[in-house]
Lab assay of single mutants.
Amino acid sequence: DFYKILGVPRSASIKDIKKAYRKLALQLHPDRNPDDPQAQEKFQDLGAAYEVLSDSEKRKQYD
């Protein structure tokens, strides 16, 4: 669930989604977690979630 990945409720605004994405991107970035083999995958999932939820048309289709 993309909302769960970003840690935001379904009613979150685009601004809230962007804020959550930036915070998590810093935490999950593979360069900051060189010892975590799943860091790259988590970071890619985060990017996919943000791409869908930050675009109003894609978000409507997802919901």
Rank of each mutant, 00 (worst) to 15 (best):
49 A>W: 00
49 A>V: 04
52 V>H: 08
60 K>P: 02
9 P>E: 14
48 A>D: 05
20 A>L: 01
39 A>L: 06
3 Y>E: 02
11 S>R: 08
62 Y>R: 02
19 K>P: 01
29 H>I: 06
31 D>L: 09
36 D>Y: 06
24 L>N: 05
21 Y>S: 02
11 S>P: 01
29 H>W: 04
57 E>M: 08
10 R>Y: 06
46 L>N: 01
58 K>Y: 05
10 R>F: 07
61 Q>M: 15
52 V>K: 02
33 N>W: 10
36 D>C: 10
11 S>L: 05
50 Y>Q: 01
18 K>L: 06
53 L>C: 01
36 D>S: 08
37 P>L: 09
28 L>D: 06
15 K>M: 11
56 S>N: 14
5 I>M: 15
22 R>L: 13
50 Y>L: 08
41 E>R: 13
15 K>G: 15
7 G>V: 00
52 V>G: 02
23 K>E: 12
14 I>W: 06
47 G>R: 10
12 A>H: 00
21 Y>A: 03
18 K>T: 11
23 K>C: 13
35 D>H: 09
13 S>T: 14
29 H>M: 08
55 D>V: 07
10 R>P: 15
62 Y>K: 01
47 G>D: 07
7 G>Q: 11
25 A>T: 12
42 K>T: 06
46 L>M: 08
13 S>C: 09
24 L>I: 10
30 P>K: 05
31 D>M: 12
15 K>W: 10
24 L>E: 08
34 P>R: 14
18 K>V: 09
45 D>H: 10
2 F>A: 06
14 I>F: 09
48 A>F: 08
47 G>P: 03
59 R>L: 01
8 V>A: 02
57 E>H: 12
17 I>E: 01
25 A>H: 07
18 K>H: 12
23 K>F: 09
2 F>Y: 15
18 K>E: 15
38 Q>K: 10
14 I>P: 10
36 D>T: 05
4 K>F: 05
3 Y>P: 05
57 E>Y: 11
57 E>V: 13
8 V>Y: 00
1 D>K: 02
53 L>N: 00
34 P>M: 13
4 K>T: 15
38 Q>S: 11
1 D>G: 06
41 E>G: 11
41 E>M: 12
17 I>W: 00
43 F>I: 07
30 P>F: 02
32 R>S: 11
36 D>L: 06
33 N>D: 04
47 G>M: 14
18 K>G: 09
9 P>T: 11
10 R>G: 06
41 E>T: 12
8 V>Q: 04
30 P>G: 01
37 P>W: 06
56 S>E: 14
57 E>R: 09
51 E>T: 10
31 D>N: 09
55 D>Q: 07
14 I>L: 11
21 Y>V: 01
49 A>S: 03
59 R>F: 03
21 Y>N: 02
50 Y>P: 00
50 Y>H: 07
1 D>A: 03
36 D>A: 05
35 D>C: 11
60 K>N: 10
16 D>R: 15
8 V>D: 02
46 L>F: 03
7 G>P: 00
11 S>T: 09
49 A>Q: 00
36 D>Q: 06
16 D>G: 06
46 L>T: 02
28 L>M: 05
2 F>V: 01
57 E>N: 05
2 F>I: 04
26 L>V: 09
62 Y>P: 01
15 K>A: 13
37 P>M: 09
58 K>M: 08
18 K>Q: 13
3 Y>I: 00
50 Y>N: 04
43 F>W: 12
29 H>A: 10
62 Y>G: 01
61 Q>Y: 13
18 K>W: 03
31 D>Y: 07
21 Y>C: 01
41 E>I: 14
3 Y>H: 05
45 D>F: 07
48 A>Y: 12
62 Y>V: 02
33 N>P: 03
14 I>T: 14
18 K>Y: 08
36 D>V: 06
61 Q>A: 14
61 Q>H: 12
34 P>F: 09
15 K>L: 13
12 A>V: 02
4 K>C: 08
56 S>G: 14
47 G>C: 15
14 I>E: 15
17 I>L: 06
44 Q>K: 12
5 I>A: 08
49 A>L: 00
9 P>K: 15
38 Q>V: 09
48 A>P: 03
20 A>V: 05
24 L>R: 12
58 K>T: 06
10 R>I: 08
51 E>W: 05
8 V>K: 03
2 F>C: 06
46 L>E: 00
12 A>S: 07
11 S>C: 09
44 Q>E: 11
53 L>D: 01
57 E>T: 10
29 H>N: 08
29 H>Q: 11
23 K>M: 14
10 R>V: 14
5 I>K: 08
29 H>T: 07
57 E>K: 13
29 H>R: 12
11 S>M: 05
42 K>W: 05
55 D>C: 11
28 L>K: 09
35 D>K: 14
62 Y>D: 03
41 E>A: 10
34 P>V: 11
22 R>I: 10
56 S>H: 10
6 L>W: 01
53 L>Q: 01
56 S>Q: 11
51 E>P: 01
12 A>P: 00
60 K>V: 09
14 I>Q: 08
2 F>W: 14
13 S>D: 15
35 D>Q: 11
39 A>G: 06
29 H>V: 05
14 I>R: 14
3 Y>R: 02
52 V>D: 01
44 Q>L: 10
6 L>V: 04
46 L>Q: 01
10 R>N: 13
26 L>K: 15
31 D>A: 12
54 S>F: 04
45 D>S: 11
43 F>K: 03
15 K>R: 14
59 R>P: 03
45 D>P: 03
55 D>H: 03
7 G>E: 09
56 S>K: 11
30 P>Y: 02
37 P>T: 11
58 K>Q: 07
47 G>Y: 06
15 K>E: 15
52 V>T: 12
4 K>E: 04
28 L>P: 04
1 D>N: 13
26 L>S: 10
49 A>K: 01
6 L>F: 05
54 S>T: 04
59 R>S: 01
30 P>L: 04
59 R>T: 02
23 K>Y: 09
16 D>Y: 07
60 K>T: 14
48 A>N: 11
32 R>L: 13
26 L>T: 13
47 G>S: 13
28 L>Y: 09
53 L>K: 00
55 D>L: 02
5 I>C: 08
14 I>M: 15
42 K>N: 12
43 F>S: 03
8 V>C: 07
11 S>F: 05
17 I>V: 09
50 Y>E: 01
25 A>V: 13
30 P>W: 00
42 K>Q: 10
53 L>P: 01
10 R>S: 14
37 P>G: 06
45 D>T: 14
48 A>H: 13
43 F>T: 02
3 Y>V: 00
19 K>L: 11
51 E>C: 04
7 G>T: 03
5 I>T: 05
28 L>W: 12
60 K>Y: 13
57 E>I: 14
17 I>N: 01
1 D>Y: 11
52 V>E: 04
42 K>G: 04
5 I>R: 06
5 I>Y: 07
38 Q>E: 08
42 K>D: 15
26 L>C: 06
46 L>H: 01
50 Y>T: 01
30 P>S: 05
20 A>H: 07
35 D>G: 13
60 K>W: 08
8 V>W: 00
7 G>K: 08
26 L>P: 13
30 P>D: 02
53 L>G: 01
43 F>L: 08
19 K>S: 15
17 I>Y: 00
23 K>W: 06
20 A>D: 01
17 I>S: 02
50 Y>V: 05
21 Y>G: 03
22 R>D: 14
28 L>S: 08
38 Q>R: 14
29 H>Y: 06
12 A>W: 01
14 I>G: 14
4 K>Y: 06
22 R>G: 11
18 K>D: 12
33 N>G: 03
35 D>V: 08
53 L>A: 04
56 S>I: 14
22 R>Y: 10
41 E>P: 05
60 K>I: 15
10 R>M: 10
46 L>Y: 02
13 S>V: 06
3 Y>T: 03
56 S>A: 14
11 S>V: 06
4 K>M: 08
2 F>D: 00
43 F>R: 05
13 S>L: 04
42 K>R: 11
45 D>Q: 14
51 E>L: 08
11 S>H: 04
